[in-house]
Amino acid sequence: MRLRIGAVSKADMLEARRCLPGAFCRPLAQRLLSWLCWTGLAALVLFCAVRFDMSPLRLWSGLSELGTLTRVMFPPASGGNMDLFLAGILETLAMAFLGTLIGGAIAFPLSFLAAKNILPAWLFHFGVRRVFDVLRGVDVMIWALIFVVAIGLGPLAGILAIAISDAGTLAKLFSEAIENIDRKQTEGVRSTGANAVKVMRFGVIPQVLPVMLSFTLYMFESNTRSATILGIVGAGGIGLLLADRIRANVWDQACLIIILILVTVYFIDFVSKRLRERLIGQGK
């Protein structure tokens, strides 16, 4: 009676095919559809490659050019500007930090308004969500360009750019976190006779707060990276110094700045990852 692969007979196989044909082969329509999808994807990739002239020859000559650049980059040198570079790094970090903090502070209250399970008025949260989309849909670089024109060169433009675009991203992430909460906890609190705000305080906040803080830290991590480029459009920080060096063909100093950026980003990633792990792991 024991099931044995060696004991499976021809008759068993016929019987199994009769009982559950789907176990052996997917229906024709399904197979055709998956073939169609794969062929379509391949055709699209091929079309784009041809359209953008992605010939191996061009890639190859580009690579050799990169080789020359790498050679003039080494050894990296400060040219006596080390203090300036470090100040630039700190400015970039400060921009990322303040921008993320302000963005998170704006996103926190808004996210509750956008969560379907908190505010069951669809027209309202539909509206709030479209506002997020505008904030988020415009890239942080474009916000930076706008703010540079509006309030002038310098870190303040960068901080505002990060804050605005983060407010949109974080509000969306926060509201999704609120929508994905475990309903058992809120039900438990509601069953004791708590009103909506009390349910929010004890049934929702304890579950979503660690998630929100973790998202915010991740955004800080990511903003440290993107804040380095903001300088290129004039929004302060290390990016401005880097862009100057590249324009003036001072590649050894540019290389040092890139190394400093890498070290900083690595350090922030490391610290933020540790903090996030502790936040998520809480109470386990």
Partner: peptide
């Protein structure tokens, strides 16, 4: 292999779960 698929179908039959196989 077809033998393995058959074995899986037989296991489902034995547990009376063949109608939910897919």
């Amino acid at each position: 292999t077809p033998e393995e698929r058959t074995l899986a179908v037989m296991a489902l039959q034995r547990l009376d779960m063949i109608k939910h196989g897919l």
